[in-house]
Simulated assay, not measured.
Amino acid sequence: MPLPALTLSLQFARFDGAAEHRAALPRHKVMRWLRHALASDAEMAVRIVDTEEGQQLNRAYREKDYATNVLTFDYAQEPVILADLVLCAPVVEREAREQNKTLQEHYAHLLVHGTLHAQGWDHETSEEDAQEMEAYETEIMTGLGFTDPYAT
């Protein structure tokens, strides 16, 4: 079965250390990771931001006054998935270090995670939903050649 079609805008804000994040996110790999997490065709923007922009967006849209790893803005799921994913580079980098993962591996996981959110998956509704979403993320990530992102 062919993978869904994806139109992607990959954007990087200007911030210290942006080159390392660009290197971890080659367009062809980002496309591959997202397409493996999609159930249907999509148009998506992925933006890599600094702490200030990440915090501003989280405050404005989730009323949480801190920068988080990934924000998903889902606009439509039919007939085409329309979504924006915003990833906060310093948070992703810190979490990758804390979890003993490469920057690329953690970005791949968060892109898969955010893409599932764009399709209606939610881990905050119940423990059962969280376990189902984590299991699906693990299936996608291992299928992409990564280790289980939730293994400790």
Rank of each mutant, 00 (worst) to 15 (best):
L111H: 02
Y136Q: 11
E95N: 09
L6C: 10
L87A: 06
H113F: 06
P4W: 10
T138H: 11
K29W: 04
R97D: 04
K64G: 00
A130D: 12
D148G: 11
L10R: 02
D122P: 00
C88T: 13
Q11K: 12
A18I: 06
A76M: 13
E134W: 08
A83I: 07
L3A: 13
A19E: 14
T115I: 10
T72S: 09
M141K: 09
A67Q: 00
L82I: 14
A89L: 02
Y61F: 14
A89K: 01
L116I: 10
P2D: 15
F146T: 11
R22Y: 05
D129M: 12
I48Q: 01
V70S: 01
A18Y: 02
S40Y: 08
A83L: 09
A151N: 12
A18L: 06
A130N: 13
E124D: 15
V91S: 00
A118G: 06
M1S: 15
H36T: 11
T72G: 03
Q56S: 10
M1D: 13
G114W: 02
A5H: 15
M141E: 07
R47S: 11
D41C: 11
R94G: 03
V70M: 03
E137G: 05
Q11N: 14
L110G: 03
A108G: 05
D122W: 03
H123Q: 13
A96V: 01
P4T: 12
A42C: 13
T72I: 05
F12M: 04
Y107L: 04
Q11V: 09
T7Q: 14
L3P: 04
A130C: 15
F12S: 04
R59W: 07
H109C: 08
V46N: 05
L34G: 00
H117F: 06
A67T: 02
D84Y: 03
Q99F: 07
E132P: 01
Q119P: 02
A135C: 07
M31T: 08
Y66V: 08
K29D: 11
A42E: 05
M31A: 08
Q56R: 14
L87Y: 00
E132W: 01
L103R: 03
E134S: 12
D148N: 15
T147R: 15
H109P: 05
L103Q: 03
R62T: 04
Q104N: 09
K64Q: 13
P79Q: 13
L10M: 05
I48Y: 00
E105K: 08
S9D: 12
A60Q: 14
R32T: 09
V46I: 12
Y107R: 02
D148I: 06
A118W: 00
R22S: 03
A118E: 07
Y66R: 12
E137I: 08
L38M: 13
Y107N: 00
T142S: 12
Y61I: 08
A37E: 02
L8Y: 03
D129E: 15
L110W: 01
M133K: 09
H109V: 04
P149E: 07
Y150D: 10
A45T: 15
Y66E: 07
T138K: 13
L38R: 08
T115P: 05
L116V: 09
L82R: 14
Q119W: 07
E139Q: 15
F73I: 09
